[in-house]
Amino acid sequence: MSTASPVKTTAVSAEGVWKAYGTGEAQVVALRDVSVQFASGAFTAIMGPSGSGKSTLMHCLAGLDTTDRGTVHIGDTPVTGLNDKALTKLRRDKIGFIFQQFNLLPTLTAEENITLPAAIAGAKADPDWLKKIIHTLDLTDRLSHKPTELSGGQQQRVACARALATRPEVVFADEPTGNLDTRSGAEVLRFLRTSVDDFGQTIVMVTHDPGAAAYADRVVFLADGRIVEDMAEPTADKVIDKMKHFEELVAAAQEETA
């Protein structure tokens, strides 16, 4: 019953991306020549230990951060080299965000938070589509509540609805379950899965939780700023197993580049 296009196109791609912070002695290279493609209608997890560069990669892909070298595309649109205005428009129209901290506006109701991107664009969100995701997320009764009146899980579901409200080309989720209990986390992950399977959305999720990664179609492992493993059809066990051998992977990757 998948509505996704049978022809897999590329939603996001990075080509030889380098990113470093600081200068001289204090310089930290966060990404070293990273090239990766994310297919449309797929759910991809990015994993890696702290400092592996997974968040940096996501920020560069999402146009929140600039790359030092290399190019990033969202669909056909080159992200690299865009000015602030164009980047803002790109984020508004083509990208959805889900954060660990939910990041809802406390002054707005759940419904207003969901339609926020459309409101900022001065447009109106497709009502049928909105209804569908709100129903799927079981938020129908909560629409008039303020974020402070919602549980953490509910808040994150509102954030999910907001990310999907404009039918973006890609949704970036940064540790979406990091601040949730296991049950709420599972609900959010199930929704993300559903949005890929039923609605054909593209999702790129950064996580350090093998259980969360198991919901994805594919897991990309990052270490020391490099992609060290690309795993299809992950399970929690496979991911945990891979992480146990991380040091070997890193060493191998370093040799390869050397």
């Binding site: 999402a62 205005k85 508004r92 959805g96 965000f97 990041n103 900022i120």
Partner: peptide, 14 residues
């Protein structure tokens, strides 16, 4: 700051 950051992230112009 965080709120403003979010708004800018999801497409609010300067």
């Amino acid at each position: 700051t965080r709120e403003l950051g979010l708004l800018r992230a999801i497409g609010m112009t300067r």
